[in-house]
Design a protein around this nucleic acid. Structure first.
Lengths: 339, 339
DNA sequence: TTGTACGCGTTATCAG
DNA sequence: CTGATAACGCGTACAA
């Protein structure tokens, strides 16, 4: 038995090409191509034999080869988030996929871990892979790598955060409004010494949420004791320590506003450790999380819809691809107290 | 001023190619290619001018064009999970990326939503995009689309679940052992009527975890009341209703084993609604979640490391790509009671 | 209705 | 050390 027959070759596992299909169907590669892209003017019997051959060989069109011709899209969308493990960004990713998957667009996903170098590498790589668009939660203030994407005409949407000096499309959350509403609730409840836990004020959301916190005080003509304002915590452990420090103050806060879910998590851990009395401390946290309503704390949440944010970002990319030549748009989604 | 000068052309946004770089650097495309892939035998001064041109034009190698040559890899890894929004799978995704990102491999991620049709579409699409490997959490019992991948030599790793009739590499969790240990804890505490909440027994993990539950009873020579065993709940809402049904039984369970985090979530919601006394019901749940330790329930958790699972799956792919021609391997990660 | 020729961007081969 | 040439898989333009 010869070991080089067609069956043997097929078993040895090389992906079949148009030519293989054409040979098997007894037509030219062009006819195969025509059949597959639904082209007209092909005799039904040939259509049949091509489709049979495709099925028999398990042929799949090579999307990469396809996309190197100019004007062709790859159907790839680059999504760069900071950490999928944060439910907020998982929702974002899912929302994006939800919208574009219908049209056969697939997601190239990368986690930057808030590291601008990793973000730069991902953006560069994604451009090299000819993504049709980019949705980025920018980790830092640098814009060079993102400008590069735009300069070769790749639609870009900034998600959650905006960047100084980049007027790209953006989908944001009403950070200031949410923080203001959450803080106002605490003030309306009579609290006068309110702690603040959040990320560094140098970050986009950090600055905006702190602004809301301060704005609520200002509006109520209530002074803010600087010692109660703790910024720079980016993970639950740091937040836990910051919360503990607040509790150990000579005049501790009677309530705390936490500017994101990582900080809320750490704060709750600190309260748990500090015993039953601390557990009564009033807390308002930005960003929801599963089971937030079931915890044995006096906790209220400022919520927003990350999945919808993802959907809108994806929609903006789709619009650009359809050729919309509008000026950059920015959408701001509401952040509201959950009742 | 002519509008067709090189500067104008560059601004109009077309991605530069090797030829553009070659022209700008005054060399041939081949030399550019050589410089970029770190090839030897290029005069230092030419290297310099090529690199300058690359920087000036913001040139990025077209990975897709690159990968159409035979034997070349795409550096793409397909990851198909059921839902990133489940922290378990988010961890998996992150673990995979962690391992392969170092080598410049990127993740093509798709959510099947437990829908076999969507999974099939994703697998087909990923193959068409010439992924170097596939990591799949299979949604159903069908194997055809996955066999197709293997038959053209694409390394495949099944994650969390195995499929009958497919001896592919697999990374699993010790579902049976974990469920057994969790249930045994309840039995050792003196419970004799233990409820069970889980996904359909026809699913891979559903069957294995139920097996552990039953096994623990058997080992303790304790009979299982079938009315206490509720399977088929795949989201928190269904689980909530199932839990409520258990509570409304004439002889309700004194403890419940919940076979995954969706079911645990629903169960806790039902307990919350049912008032203070129900809150005292003893629960052991499979799969951890944030804040599980802080809830006002008598809750214990059987935990396992999804991120590590992702890392191992990725490692298996890497091994295959390195040419390891071993028989299919299956790793089973421990699932242990958190103390 | 079907097939041939060529080009997309990149790189291996081989000649210079 | 450098460049011309061909080929990868596919699709468009054109010819038959």
């Amino acid at each position: 038995m010869p070991s080089s027959g067609p069956d043997a070759a097929r078993a040895v596992s090389r992906a079949p090409t148009v030519r293989d299909v054409a040979d098997a169907a007894g037509v030219s590669p062009m006819t195969v191509s025509r059949v597959l892209r639904g082209g007209p003017n092909v005799r039904p019997e040939k259509v049949r034999s091509v489709l049979d051959a495709v099925a028999a060989l398990g042929y799949r069109r090579n999307e990469n080869a396809r996309s190197i011709r100019p004007g062709q899209r790859t159907g790839l969308l680059g999504v760069i988030i900071t950490n999928v493990t944060n439910p907020y960004y998982a929702q974002l990713q899912l929302g994006v996929e939800e919208v574009v998957a219908r049209e056969g667009v697939r997601l190239l996903v990368g986690n930057s871990g808030e590291d601008i170098e990793r973000e730069r590498a991902l953006v560069g790589d994604f451009i090299g892979r000819q993504v049709d668009g980019l949705i980025v939660v920018p980790a830092g203030g640098e814009t060079g790598h993102l400008q590069a994407a735009r300069s070769i005409g790749i639609p870009l949407v900034l998600a959650s955060r905006r960047l100084e000096g980049m007027d790209a499309d953006a989908v944001l959350v009403d950070d200031r409004g949410g923080a203001l509403e959450g803080t106002a609730l605490l003030i309306s409840e009579g609290h006068e010494r309110i702690g603040y836990l959040g990320t560094a004020a140098s970050t986009f959301t950090g600055a905006r949420r702190l602004e809301g916190f301060l704005g609520a005080h200002e509006r109520a003509r209530l002074a803010v004791d600087p010692v109660l304002v703790r910024t720079g915590q980016s993970d639950p452990e740091e937040a836990r320590r910051a919360m503990r420090a607040l509790l150990e103050l000579e005049r501790p806060p009677t309530a705390v506003f936490s500017a994101n879910n990582r900080n809320t998590l750490g704060a709750l851990r600190a309260l748990s450790e500090a015993g039953e009395r601390s557990r009564q401390l009033r807390i308002v946290g930005f960003d929801d999380f599963e089971l937030s309503g079931m915890l044995p704390f006096r906790l209220a949440i400022v919520d927003h819809d990350a999945r919808e944010l993802g959907r809108i970002a994806a929609g903006m990319i789709v619009d650009r691809l359809r050729g919309a030549d509008l000026p950059p748009r920015a959408v701001e989604l509401p952040a509201r107290l959950k009742r």
